[in-house]
């Protein structure tokens, strides 16, 4: 058998590369690992950890999370968050896709100005408008209402339409023109030609517009006063200091829907669906 020869220089390079990757992985993964371990802590309090990690592990905190709902109704918060995030994601995606399609395909007078304006407005952090949003929501009587949150999230979503517009720009306009000559109206072109071609982009938009309401803290904290309406983020923050393992378990568990959502939709995320339409 031939002996595998590796040059020392190459070996060194590989070793250095792996070391860097390991270091980066450690930085990224250690907090997650710690949180997962903390969620399995038996005692529940952060003060009872021996050193850095919990001394004893058990599934207790997860059990309590779903069973002990008298004071902290985690399942309720979870469903609240899911409802808000799903609705915002659906409405937000429709709005984003429509905005992007209009900006990509239609030419009208204020198009450039609107594009620039939305781009700049989208750059401002959402909490900057907190006071204004709060006042408006009181006026509309939407404080303590989940639809108030959904409204804000959905309306804010199209600000980030640029990625979607970029995608629509890559669908050749001659396909639209061919469909127009074939007798399709603008709406039919959108539904029958553009949307099927934009499936990967729609999935991406659904996912990305799901994540913001799912993990947002500031707006729900601001608008939801009733404990039964809390989202997970707000609810977890309201936990008592001694309930640390419950906090950790709740934090770990909210990652589940995102993972499920991602795997369910990932098969649509394949690119190259438009291959063969036109000759480039």
């Amino acid at each position: 058998m031939k002996k595998l020869k590796i040059k020392p220089q190459k070996l060194f390079n590989v070793a250095i590369t792996y070391l860097i990757i390991l270091a980066v992985c450690f930085v990224f993964l250690f907090p997650i690992l710690w949180l997962v371990l903390a969620s399995f802590s038996k005692t529940g309090s952060i003060y009872s950890f021996e050193g850095f990690f919990p001394a004893e592990l058990s599934l207790d905190s997860f059990k309590r999370l779903f069973t002990d709902t008298a004071l902290y109704n985690y399942p309720r918060w979870f469903l609240n968050t899911l409802f808000i995030a799903l609705m915002s994601s659906l409405i937000g995606t429709s709005l984003t896709i429509l905005t992007a399609y209009v900006m990509s395909r239609f030419r009208f007078k204020t198009r450039k100005a609107m594009m620039k304006m939305t781009l700049i407005l989208g750059m401002f952090p959402s909490f900057m408008t907190m006071t204004a949003v709060y006042l408006m929501m009181t006026q509309f009587n939407l404080i303590n209402q989940q639809w108030g949150l959904i409204l804000i999230y959905s309306a804010g979503a199209p600000m980030g339409y640029l990625t979607q517009k970029g995608f629509f720009d890559t669908i050749p306009s001659s396909i639209d023109e061919a469909a127009r000559i074939d007798g399709a109206s603008n709406f039919k072109i959108f539904v029958r030609i553009t949307l099927p071609l934009a499936a990967p982009m729609i999935v991406y938009t659904l996912l990305s517009s799901f994540v913001w309401p799912w993990s947002d803290f500031i707006l729900p904290q601001l608008l939801l006063k009733n404990k039964d309406l809390y989202t997970v983020a707000v609810g977890l923050m309201s936990l008592d200091d001694t309930e640390f393992s419950r906090f950790a378990a709740g934090s770990v568990f909210i990652a589940v829907p995102i993972v499920v959502f991602y795997f369910a939709l990932s098969k649509f995320l394949i690119s190259g669906l438009s291959a063969g339409a036109v000759k480039q």
């Binding site: 050749p172 001659s174 396909i175 023109e177 061919a178 469909a179 030609i193 099927p196 071609l197 669906l273 438009s274 291959a275 063969g276 339409a277 036109v278 000759k279 480039q280």
Partner: peptide
């Protein structure tokens, strides 16, 4: 059309 413009899906 020059680039055929078929509906790819």
């Amino acid at each position: 059309f020059q680039n055929y413009a078929l509906y790819p899906h």
